[in-house]
Amino acid sequence: MCTVTFLPKGKSSYILTSNRDETPKRAALAPEAYTAHGKEVFFPKDPLAGGTWVATDKQQFTLCLLNGAFEKHHHKPPYKLSRGIMLLDFFKYNNIQSFVEQYDFSGIEPFTLILIESNNSLSATELVWDEMKLYVRSLDVTQPQIWSSSTLYPEAVRAERKHWFKLWLEAHDKFQQNEIIDFHKTGGKGDEWNDFVMNREGKVQTVSVTSIEKNTDYYTMVYEDLIS
Rank of each mutant, 00 (worst) to 15 (best):
K185T: 06
K214N: 13
K25I: 12
Q59T: 15
W129D: 01
E155V: 12
M132A: 14
S138R: 12
S123K: 14
V128Q: 12
K39A: 02
S138H: 11
E40Y: 04
N95Y: 07
S138T: 12
V100N: 05
F91D: 02
M221H: 06
P24W: 05
S118D: 00
L226A: 08
Y34Q: 08
L167N: 13
V204S: 11
E126P: 00
R20D: 07
K80M: 06
F6Y: 14
E160I: 12
P47C: 09
N178T: 13
L113P: 00
G68C: 05
Q177F: 05
V100L: 03
L48D: 11
S121V: 08
T35W: 10
G68E: 07
F165M: 11
G188D: 06
V222S: 07
G188P: 10
H184P: 07
A156H: 15
L48V: 14
I15G: 03
Q60P: 01
K185W: 06
D89I: 00
W164N: 02
Y135M: 10
H74V: 15
N178Y: 12
F61E: 00
E22T: 09
D195S: 03
M221T: 11
K185H: 07
D225M: 10
P110E: 02
Q145R: 12
L113D: 00
K76N: 13
T112D: 05
F196I: 04
V54Y: 08
S121G: 10
Q177V: 11
T35E: 14
Q205P: 10
W193I: 13
F42S: 00
D195M: 03
T56K: 03
G188W: 03
D225A: 10
K133R: 13
H184R: 02
S148E: 11
T52S: 09
D57F: 05
A156F: 14
P24E: 04
F91T: 01
R137L: 05
L7I: 08
L226E: 08
Q97V: 10
P31K: 04
G51S: 09
L65C: 05
N215L: 13
I96Y: 00
K72P: 01
P8G: 02
C64S: 15
E109C: 08
L139R: 07
F105M: 04
E224D: 15
V222E: 10
F70A: 13
F61T: 01
